[in-house]
Every structure is written in structure tokens, then in C-alpha cells.
Design a protein around this nucleic acid. Structure first.
Length: 567
RNA sequence: UGAGGAAUGGUGUAACGGUAACACGCCUGACUCUGGAUCAGGUAUUCCAGGUUCGAAUCCUGGUUCCUCAGCCA
């Protein structure tokens, strides 16, 4: 037997270029065969599924090679960072299923150490205090094609630099008036090597260090040194940091301290949505969605509320693999992986989203019975439940057609179908209101088909879900669709707001679900048979449950209709 | 016009000088008390031009296209 479970790449050891590099390093005895990674978010916003890729990579590489992965908050910019984000990020990482043990670090924990290291560079003549203003620094930097020019403060003596740097730290100079800069090469072809800023003067209260510091390290200065201090071996980051690697290496080489290896990979992009913090913030600010946990968003909070499972997200990340090619993954693939997991794990239930009444004219008025239904055909251990049945029922409006078109084989006048786990029914008549809208469908049922099988072996083309009108629980269902419409190939540079799907949310307020759903806890997931996977939203109240569509079922009939529309 | 990267079906990834493969999507069909799931089949791929080689997606040369970089953001 050939095991093709390898498609679920997240389970066993993944094989991609990052894993190959690490395996090679181990083989060569680099870092004594040790593997230690880190996930380094900045606590200035919420995590999204793009971060999930980094999280899964960082933790899985550690796990696969018997190493460790740290959680490190890259909190070097106090004006953007807040504790609220720290807590939210931890919750999200935990929800995804990863454990950083005691290894929760903060760049800010190293401010003292970083300062000492900076002093060392100054002493070596590798850094200097520069009095140029921000604009002047930009001006002196040059352009990608033209080298910059040296700062007039570049050749200060070590003593003067030491003194000035200490006075910066002591708060003797106003914000922005001076910086500490690495002394590298103002003519370097890589702009980042043109005497990058290591410290800026910034009087802002930091979420952890309060007002202890009025100078803060920049990313490039802090990141590599923190990696080094934590003993990181492989520092995985996204492609845009490729240009930073020479600088990352330079600091570590000058200092002569433990030197991790930075490896860059392509970030995750998905069709029909946005991933950038800026764009997500804009959607919220402009009211296109309701907040960071809006179920239409690819944020982890949003996906959680939508009903995504962490298992599915991890499986998805494993299966798209990791490479250096920039790519856009089809949302359909994420949904496929999601359905795969939900299909195996979701209890089935019946819910009618757009009800139309069915009256069984030959069923006694007062009779009620309970019919046995299977909770999960994929897994017998889920058992069965009893569902109430009576004379008046609701079925899906779309499951009836007065004048059925070709290939429609659900209920229609004179036609017999099965009510799932219940009876065969035959449509005899329809009742309409003054405007000609169908208000009731009158059917007869065949008592001999109780449970759903005909003793005479008679077959029907369709099986419909239903609820008993008298017993059903009214519910609200929020139907979600892609946040963005498909990209228009001829339209270039259009604002992404032009692609917003006006129908990304449709609230259905007149739904009816099985009474057994009365006490379903927020977050619990179900398959509404034939419709899709749903989960209970936190907006649920005792009086009225609220469900979110997680992902719809694949639907052949819908596809036929679509084909027909398109000609 | 500088530096650093990347190019394989519609999409994502593999093949590490030896038959271009896997998954998603799409299309057929089978089966079915979910038009779900499952199963079977089909569709379609090496950026271009040269070169090396018995043999090139892979090596070499030259080009093309795309991405990143001029924050005291990360």
C-alpha cells in the first residue's frame, strides 16, 4: 500500500527548502546540531492567517528537528504597541495549538543588554552619534541608484560618541534631535547599509518598560541581537527582509556574538481577501466590516468566530508548503481543507434557512412522533438523536418548484421525495396568497415509509431536510461570502475597495432549526445537512440562537444553475 | 539607471542531469436516505534564445517579466 497521506504535510516531517537548509546545518554540525526558532510578532495589531503560516513554520521546524521555539514580542516601538495586542496574540497562538512553554520573551527585556552592545560598537568605532535631522538623514542617504554622502558627524571621536550616547540615554536631548548610527558605508549599493539608525530619541511610555527609556532601538539593531541573546539558530522571516540580511549579519559579525542564520520565505496571500494590516484596519475604520473579529476577515479572531478549526488551518499551511516564490493561494483550497476536517468532526443537524410551510394533509392533527437521526455518518461513535415530527413542517423554499426545470429533482407538484429520516411525501397542491406567492405546499405522506425507506423498494430522486413547525427553534443565520470579488484582469491599479463584495454578509432572520440546538454553546460547530457548516456565534441569546456560516457544502445543483445563467 | 530576490498546468507545490508528479479547481461517470462525502476517469505545465550533454525544468551564457529596498516602522 502506498501511503499518500503525505498530502497532509503538517503531520509528518515537512520537506521544503527551509527544512532542507536546517537539515543540512544539522548534518554539518552548525550550532552543534541544535535547532531553536522564534515567532516574533510586534504587538501592534491582531494576527491573521498569514501570521499563522509563520507560526506553523517556526514551531514545526523546531518540533521536527527536536528543538524549541520561542514566542518573542518585537516591541521596540512604544507608540504603536499595546498590552492588549500581547494578550490577543498569545491567545491566537495558543488557539492554533502551539506552546512556547516558559519561553516568552520581549525585545524590551533586552533594552539594557542592547544598550551595552551598542556601547561596544561605539567603542570599536563602529557606531556614532549623528545630529542630523530626520529629513537630513533621508537626504544624505542618497537613492537606490546613487550613493549617499557621509554625515558631518561621522568622524566624531569614540570618547565624544560615548559621552553623547550616554547623554541621549539620560534624556538630555529633545526627541528626534540625534540618533546613534552604525558606521558602515554611505556608498553601499544596499541602502540599508548606509549608516542605518540604531537608536532614536523618543519620549513615549512603553507598555512594559514604562518611562525607563527615552531612546529606543530600531528593528534592525534589536532583532538580530535578540535572536542571538535567545540562542536562536534559525531566524525565519518573510521575503522583504532579504535586503536586511547583510545588516543582520554585519551587527553580529562586528559584535562577534552567537550568529543565527536568517532564512527568508514568501508570505501567504489568499484570493478574494486582504492580508495587510493597513488594509484590514481600513476596512474596519470605514465600516465595511464590524471589527477585527468580523467573520469575513482572515484574522485569526475572525476565522475563529467564523468557525474555522485550528486543525484545518494547520493542515492548510502544511499543504501549501513553503517556498521563495511569491504566490497567491486559491481560497477554494483553504475551504477544501476546512470542509475535509469539518466533515469528519461536525455533528449533523437540520436547519431550514428560508422556510416554506409543508402541510401533510393525511397526517393526524395532534400526532407527534420522534424519529431517529444519525449524528455523523462519517463516524458512528457520534450516535443518534431523536427529531420531532408533526403534520406541519418547514422545508427550504428552494427545494420546491411549482414548474420544475430540467435537472431539478426536488419537490414539485405530483412528485414524491423523501424527508430525511422521516417519510416519503408527495406534493398534491399549493396554496397562494393574493399576490400569487406560495404560502403552503400540501402533501400526503406514506406511513409505510417511516424512517425513510419504502418497503416496496420504491426510490426517490431527492431527500430534503426539514423541521417540525411546531417544535422548531427560530434562529438567525449569518451567511458569509468572499470579502472581495475576483480580481479584474484588465483593471489595473484599481482600489481594492472597488472589489468589495456587497453581498459578503447576508443576515437571515427567519430560520428554523431543530429544537435540540436550544442550548448549543457559542463556538460549537454543526453541519446543517445539505447546506453547510455553521457555528454558534457569541451574539447568541437564550431567546434566539445565532449561527455563522463557516463554509457551504459543495453544491452540484447550484453549479448547474450557475452554468445555466452563464449560458 | 543601483542592490537583493523569484519565474513549472487556471492555482499551490514536487522532481536535486535520466518517463515532468501530487493536491486544489474545472469537466465526465459510478454510488448514495445530504445534488454532501466516497470512488473512477478526463483536462492542463517547465519565461525566452542560444550552448554543454547520449540526455536539461535542473548546468552555462545572454535576455525578458515580476517582487523588495530611499521610516528615526516592523
Amino acid at each position: 500500500m502506498t501511503d499518500t497521506a503525505g498530502s497532509s504535510g503538517s503531520e509528518e516531517g515537512a520537506s521544503h527548502f527551509v527544512a532542507e537548509i536546517i537539515a543540512e546545518d544539522i548534518e554539518n554540525g552548525r550550532y552543534d546540531g541544535r535547532v531553536h526558532t522564534r515567532f516574533p510578532p510586534e504587538p501592534n495589531g491582531y494576527l491573521h492567517i498569514g501570521h499563522a503560516k509563520a507560526i506553523c513554520l517556526d514551531f514545526s521546524m523546531a518540533e521536527q528537528f527536536g528543538g524549541l521555539c520561542n514566542l518573542r514580542f518585537d516591541d521596540t516601538n512604544p507608540i504603536k504597541e499595546e498590552v492588549e495586542y500581547v494578550e490577543a496574540i498569545k491567545e491566537d497562538v495558543r488557539w492554533l495549538g502551539f506552546d512556547w512553554g516558559e519561553r516568552e520573551y520581549y525585545a524590551s527585556d533586552q533594552f539594557g543588554r542592547l544598550y551595552e552592545l551598542a556601547v561596544r560598537l561605539v567603542e570599536k568605532g563602529n557606531a556614532y552619534v549623528c545630529d542630523l535631522s530626520a529629513e537630513e538623514v533621508n537626504d544624505y542617504r542618497g537613492t537606490p541608484t546613487r550613493g549617499g554622502k557621509d554625515s558631518p558627524y561621522r568622524d566624531r571621536s569614540v570618547e565624544e560618541n560615548l559621552e553623547l550616547f550616554e547623554r541621549m540615554r539620560n534624556g538630555e536631548f529633545p526627541d528626534g534631535s540625534r540618533t546613534l548610527r552604525a558606521k558602515i558605508d554611505m556608498a553601499h549599493p544596499n541602502i540599508l547599509m548606509r549608516d542605518p539608525v540604531m537608536y532614536r530619541i523618543l519620549r513615549a511610555t512603553h507598555h512594559r518598560t514604562g518611562d525607563d527609556w527615552c531612546i529606543y532601538p530600531t528593528y534592525d539593531w534589536a532583532h538580530g541581537q535578540c535572536d542571538s541573546i535567545e540562542g536562536i539558530t534559525h531566524s525565519l522571516c518573510t521575503l522583504e527582509f532579504e535586503n536586511h540580511r547583510p545588516l543582520y549579519d554585519w551587527y553580529l559579525d562586528q559584535l562577534g556574538i552567537h550568529h543565527p542564520r536568517q532564512i527568508e520565505f514568501a508570505r501567504l496571500n489568499l484570493t478574494n481577501t486582504v492580508m495587510s494590516k493597513r488594509l484590514l484596519a481600513r476596512l474596519i475604520a470605514e465600516g465595511h466590516v464590524d471589527g477585527w473579529d468580523d467573520p469575513r476577515l482572515p484574522t485569526l479572531k475572525g476565522l475563529r468566530r467564523r468557525g474555522y478549526t485550528p486543525e484545518a488551518i494547520r493542515d492548510f499551511i502544511g499543504r501549501i508548503s513553503v517556498a521563495k516564490t511569491e504566490s497567491v493561494v486559491d481560497m477554494a483550497f483553504l475551504e477544501h481543507v476546512l470542509r475535509e476536517h469539518l466533515n469528519k468532526t461536525s455533528p449533523r443537524v437540520m436547519g431550514v434557512l428560508d422556510p416554506i410551510k409543508v402541510v401533510l394533509t393525511n397526517y393526524p392533527e395532534d400526532k407527534e412522533e420522534a424519529l431517529e437521526a444519525i449524528n455523523n455518518p462519517e463516524d458512528p461513535s457520534y450516535g443518534t438523536r431523536m427529531v420531532p415530527f408533526s403534520r406541519e413542517l418547514y422545508i427550504e423554499r428552494a427545494d420546491f418548484m411549482e414548474e420544475p426545470v430540467k435537472k431539478f429533482y426536488r419537490l414539485a407538484p405530483g412528485r414524491e421525495v423523501r424527508l430525511r429520516y422521516a417519510y416519503f411525501i408527495t406534493c398534491q397542491d399549493v396554496v397562494k396568497d393574493a399576490d400569487g406567492n406560495i404560502t403552503e405546499v400540501h402533501c400526503t405522506y406514506d406511513p409505510a415509509t417511516r424512517g425513510g425507506d419504502a418497503p416496496d423498494g420504491r426510490r426517490v430522486k431527492a431527500t430534503l431536510h426539514w423541521v417540525s413547525a411546531r417544535h422548531a427553534l427560530p434562529a438567525e443565520v449569518r451567511m458569509y461570502d468572499d470579502l472581495l470579488l475576483d480580481e479584474d484582469e484588465d483593471e489595473e491599479g484599481e482600489d481594492f475597495l472597488d472589489r468589495i463584495n456587497p453581498d459578503s454578509l447576508q443576515v437571515l432572520t427567519d430560520c428554523r432549526v431543530e429544537p435540540g440546538l436550544k442550548d448549543a454553546a457559542p463556538g460549537s460547530r454543526f453541519q446543517f445537512e445539505r447546506k453547510g457548516y455553521f457555528c454558534v456565534d457569541p451574539d447568541t441569546t437564550e431567546r434566539r440562537p445565532v449561527f455563522n456560516l463557516t463554509v457551504s457544502m459543495r453544491d452540484k445543483w447550484r453549479r448547474i444553475q450557475k452554468q445555466r445563467q452563464q449560458g
